[in-house]
Design a protein around this nucleic acid. Structure first.
Lengths: 339, 339
DNA sequence: TTGAAAGCGCTAACAT
DNA sequence: ATGTTAGCGCTTTCAA
């Protein structure tokens, strides 16, 4: 049995409240007693029971990070791994523990209710944004501290971090147009996610501003799985040959390249991915990709949450994380002319 | 303020002990009262306070997963990501939460002491094995439930899961020898990790069994970072041209290929990686790699730990997870002859 | 079948 | 500057 505060109090000949006070660094404690208490703690290698502390405090120094349901998106694709890394780093540095979890049967609401109701965590970070998210509604209603990675529809009552998805896709699309592309396909994730809609809007706006008509056959959505992207690409190739494809995940982009290669179009079609994963550097042709700095998204999400938990007012309710286009061979005009 | 047991007891006109009993599914409770209590719970949308429960129970239904210190190995390389995924999946399915953390200043002992002392978790999973690991020693001394991913030196007092690292490297090395390789380089992680030594032993045994002398210049160790592997390769190339390189992580293998390419040796040297990551499929030449099934390692680690926590005797104290060699272009003789 | 009461280990208001 | 005491919300022994 590990030592308790009581044991320490006995040994140091003080009351438990005194022990509690030295632990808390309370000022009104004489140097001598503080020393005695510390010695007693050391002698017994005392460690405070955080559970007891939590019960008394109503605080756990633990935050929860909710991943998407693995049935909706592969558990921990590169984006989420980076985000976790960022969250973990900030949390650890600030003395918070990280509870990593995901919903079952896509039921995020039940998970959040459980997390909040059980009082295991002080706050939660959500990693997806959908319309009328019941989990988010619940968090807002309960006034439970939370941060969303992604731009929530109701951005008044929640803290959030995101890239400017519309702008970055606008930029990429415009760039391709400048290179002479006119038939630009757009492959993205499920349209229940706001990130999908934002990016698509950036794409549409760019086409519009350059007077390029929208061809619905060039717009596809799927889960972030390579084979699905290959499938979609073959589908598109049945009706026309696009001169560029923007895919909102490198995994998708790789699937696109694979399908293009089947028809020997790999050098005729510019391809751009997202998330700048390792594969982007290694596929041939090297894949142009949008670096969204997912690690920073996670880091700032944790920062926003933890600052809020500690009552620190950052005078800011969201962070917009820089994203930038990394051009590689797969979308460079010269590469395409090579053939 | 969320409802407490007391509120439920009031509403149902019973004592808190009765509420506690229905919650626990205690048999000696009349059907009527049980019903009344359940209704009261529903009416108040009562959720038990897990912290209070934990304090009373001395149990948290949370397990900790310790990652390596990011200063020693990049935080969450592919191996660990897969392992996390496996642990998380099993834990979630069995109603356990996952606390993800890592030591600071490489001080795993302090972290483990804190984790155990604070009673935040019911058990911990370690992901690295070093000699005389103080963290492991502490866990054994405290008799605190734990599982190690990797084969611990003291395998009597801990549960563990691992691949048969020696055997798989023996197999890969022998294969390369059969293909005619005689100068096989071996690049691996830090030799403080047992996995490094085991794999190296497999390599040495294979050489020995085929009467090939060991050339120490061909054996290098480094952190799992691409550039370091490239560096090591250049170092080796100064003194001799190996006909094969075994690298115990795909990241290293990629660095090797990069260095080989600088000297236009990429088609003359067989290269084998480990962990069968995505890049292995996409680099050119496609990288042969050992699939160690890290996700299964994590899954079975969690299974071992949780079964132990629940007092279920699996009649087994470790799992040996299958690993197998996936041969691709980078090590195939024909590919090498191409040039 | 149910309730009363003690206890899990800590914190904090109140008292001295 | 320190001790006393009453919780925090639950479980569980003991008694009825």
């Amino acid at each position: 049995m590990p030592a308790t505060m009581k044991d320490v109090a006995h040994l140091a000949n003080v009351s438990t409240s005194t022990v509690s006070r030295v632990l808390a660094g309370h000022p009104a404690i004489s140097a001598e007693t503080a020393l005695r208490v510390r010695e007693a703690m050391a002698a017994l290698s005392y460690q405070p029971n955080q559970i007891a502390r939590s019960l008394s405090n109503q605080t756990t120094r633990t935050i929860a990070l909710l991943m998407p349901d693995p049935s909706a998106s592969p558990l921990m694709n590169a984006f989420f791994v980076s985000a976790i890394r960022g969250v973990m780093t900030y949390a650890r540095k600030n003395g918070y523990y990280l509870l990593l979890t995901y919903p079952e049967n896509n039921d995020t609401e039940t998970l959040v209710r459980d997390l909040v109701g059980s009082r295991r965590t002080d706050g939660v970070i959500l990693t997806t944004v959908i319309k009328d998210d019941p989990a988010l509604t619940f968090l807002i209603a309960q006034n439970h501290p939370h941060v969303v990675i992604g731009h929530p529809y109701d951005d008044q009552n929640t803290l959030w971090v995101d890239n400017d998805n519309q702008a970055i896709v606008y930029e990429v699309t415009s760039r391709l147009i400048q290179q002479g592309c006119r038939n630009i396909a757009f492959l993205s994730g499920a349209d229940e996610f706001r990130v999908t809609l934002d990016r698509q809007q950036g794409y549409l706006n760019a086409l519009h501003d350059h007077d390029i008509p929208v061809n619905p056959d060039l717009i596809h959505r799927s889960r972030f799985i390579e084979t699905l992207a290959a499938e979609a690409t073959r589908e598109i190739l049945k009706t026309c040959l696009p001169d560029a494809v923007i895919a909102t995940d490198d995994t998708l982009a790789v699937g696109v390249e694979k399908a293009l290669r089947e028809f020997h179009y790999e050098h005729n079609v510019a391809v751009v991915g997202f998330n700048n994963t390792l594969v982007a550097q290694f596929v041939r042709p090297a894949l142009s990709s949008v670096e969204i700095n997912a690690e920073q998204l996670g880091y700032y999400a944790a920062k926003l949450l933890i600052s809020h938990l500690e009552g620190i007012d950052l005078h800011i309710r969201h962070y917009l994380i820089d994203a930038h286009f990394i051009e590689r061979e797969s979308s460079r005009p010269k590469a395409k002319r090579k053939k």
